[in-house]
């Protein structure tokens, strides 16, 4: 993970922060098959877990900060820089670039806390909870299908959709960001396993085709 000079954070802690799959960076690069399927660990994100009744006033105030709240399974709302993923009827994951974090000069978490106010619910800073794998390429879907029981065919899983499910027996939020690109959000402790699992699933596409 390349350090971002501008983001020094509190007491310089940002400088020593390592991402959960950083030890796999070389392996991910080596295991990627250009033109077939490419895997890398994405940059740090600011993430907030939000629990609120979307139909309440508190929900409306939160929605004003995030650019809406998704109303059904799979839906992703947000702005250019913020994605709000549906986790449950009253539970959402807000994902934004790292710089949005309050410790780095941003305002996202504070704004969400303020928007919720005294309303029932909670806003929790989960920025270190999950890491991000970015998987893309024409074989990306085939790789995921080895360990995900959902129907990932484009007719039912469309870009701009995110689902809470399992990939390789690991609980992840699986987001489809483009026709051939996905983001996987596993919890940090599963990053090593899932990274290696994905690499293993990608291996066949680096091998010569059996005639």
């Amino acid at each position: 993970m390349a350090k971002t000079a501008a983001l020094t954070g509190v007491n310089g802690l940002r400088d020593i922060r390592r991402s959960p799959a950083s030890h796999l960076a070389e392996a991910l690069d080596a295991g990627s098959v250009r033109g077939q399927v490419v895997l890398n660990e994405g940059p740090f994100q600011t993430m907030a877990g939000v629990r609120v009744d979307p139909r309440s006033e508190g929900g409306s105030r939160i929605a004003a900060v995030t650019g809406g709240l998704p109303v059904r399974c799979g839906e992703v709302t947000g702005t250019d820089s913020i994605s709000v993923l549906w986790l449950g009827p009253s539970e959402f994951l807000v994902v934004a670039p790292e710089a949005a974090h309050d410790s780095l000069g941003g305002t996202l978490i504070g704004s969400l806390v303020e928007a919720l106010g005294d309303a029932p619910g909670q806003v929790v800073d989960l920025s270190a909870n999950r890491t991000t794998f970015e998987l893309s390429g024409p074989q990306a879907r085939a790789v995921l299908e080895k360990g995900c029981a959902l129907d990932l065919h484009p007719r039912s899983f469309t870009p701009g959709t995110a689902l809470n499910t399992e990939v390789g027996n690991i609980p992840v939020v699986l987001e489809k960001t483009g026709e051939e690109s996905f983001r996987l959000f596993p919890r940090a402790s599963f990053a090593d396993f899932l990274g290696r699992w994905l690499l293993d699933a990608m291996r066949e596409y680096g091998s010569p085709e059996v005639p």
Binding site: R51, V52, D53, P54, R55, S56, G59, R72, C73, G74, P89, S90, P120, G121, Q122, L150, D151, L152, R155, S156, F157, T161, L163, T165
Partner: peptide, 23 residues
């Protein structure tokens, strides 16, 4: 936590309402 859960058909069965889609 709130009253956010959607109302759902009480007798929906696995086979009749579950499409083959992930959504």
């Amino acid at each position: 936590t709130g009253t956010a859960a959607p109302s759902i058909a009480a007798t929906s069965t696995a086979t009749s309402t579950a499409p083959a889609s992930a959504t």
